[in-house]
Design a binder for these strands. Structure first.
Lengths: 225, 225
DNA sequence: GTATGGTAAAAAATCGATTATTTTGTCTAA
DNA sequence: TTAGACAAAATAATCGATTTTTTACCATAC
């Protein structure tokens, strides 16, 4: 019997995990305003789920740091602050730099292929497509691939968390084409340096890359307040 | 009217947050066997809560990394592995070292007082009292205090997470009095070096401290398997 | 005017029961 | 004996309703 049919609208997984993924994307993408208190009943409607799976997702997001939970008074979207942005950027510098050096040491030829693929897909991405969501997806994937073979699951976990937090700032405003091009170029330079196994140069470039992204994020934050 | 009476058994907070705290302690303290599948109904009994708050707590713990959640098949206690222990210890070296240097730079006299207090309470702790739980509490608190003024909330968050993970290994077996004494001494030496603002020496000592703790944890893990 | 207290409405948290999925056990056919 | 099919049991996930707590509003006293 053929059980492999797509079953139409069964995206696999529980209602809770689906709403978690969706909410996470929306929080990182700035679909909620920082500091806002979440109206659970409205979210039920918005995501078409019941209360239980929704609350489970909210609890997970709170533990993950994309929400803050106050006992007996629900969930809110964390406030943004200059201090926190600085903190996040600095931690990205430290942790991603560390991870990149390790990745260049350990990464094999499969990694090289993945990296080339991820960079290529990112370049090809249609930035106009639904609010740049496809580009965002591929951009995240590229940075994930870059550090993937660092050998530490905890380091990767922290980096992913920081990325989500950083993007809350970076994605506050619309795309900035000029600086955008510069950052895109750096992605390819990063791949080259990685393939050449030049850990030192790669780390310096990544530092610069994060620094430039930080400037973008900071500007958007300041315009946004 | 006097509303400030203790209200006997009202430890404040929601059922969910209470069971979260309790479960976290039990998971870190090794009250569950690694790899074990959690029987939710049994937990309901054990912690005297309903299904909803219990599941919310489990979801938070999964996001925090003290449980693994598999869609449609509940929660289990994460397995232990040599590789992961190595990873955790290495990350502790990196992150706590970084945090300690920053703390020594930024910490003020209030911090000095807190640190002395935490070290003193740790020394005074009755290690025989209920399975050393009081000592564990104070030990955690000491290490938290040590790095507290590092200036990065994310760094502190990651360090706390790593501590919980590390303790799953360290607390596998019973106390080892010989090495225990050596580690206790180091706590006081750390305070001294911190007060002297000798960041370099302090970091080296902390490295050694974590290294020794790692040896303990590794031995316990190997005996435990 | 400000503060205090009381009530109604809203929202959060929790419960009890239902539904969906996985696991277990048994039987049958090769 | 073993693989597969099926049913029954166990467990996970979700729903709908209830309970608890907070918030908003208004009246009264100082």
């Amino acid at each position: 019997m053929n059980n492999s049919l797509p079953k139409s609208a069964t995206p696999a997984g529980t209602a809770s995990s689906r709403v978690f993924d969706h909410l996470r994307k929306d929080l990182v993408g700035g679909r909620f305003v920082a500091g806002e208190k979440l109206a659970i009943n409205a979210l039920k409607e918005r995501y078409q789920v019941g209360l239980s799976p929704l609350r489970e997702a909210l609890n997970k997001l709170a533990a993950y740091g994309l929400l803050v939970q106050e006992n007996q008074r629900g969930f809110r979207v964390p406030k943004l602050s200059r201090d926190e942005l600085d903190d996040i950027a600095r931690m990205r510098l430290e942790l991603e730099g560390m991870a990149l050096e390790r990745a260049i040491t350990h990464g094999n030829s499969l990694w090289e292929a993945d990296l080339l693929g991820a960079a290529h897909r990112l370049k090809r991405a249609d930035i106009t497509l639904d609010k740049g969501e496809e580009w965002e997806q591929l951009h995240t994937q590229f940075h994930r691939t870059l550090v993937a073979p660092c050998g530490s699951v905890w380091l990767l976990r922290f980096i992913e968390q920081l990325h989500d937090q950083f993007d809350r700032y970076r994605r506050l405003g619309p795309k900035m084409p000029t600086i955008r091009q510069e950052l895109d170029d750096q992605h390819h330079q990063l791949v080259e340096l990685a393939l050449q196994r030049d850990a030192k140069a790669a780390r310096e470039l990544l530092d610069d890359h994060i620094h430039k992204s930080y400037e973008v994020a900071l500007k958007r934050y300041q315009e946004h307040v």
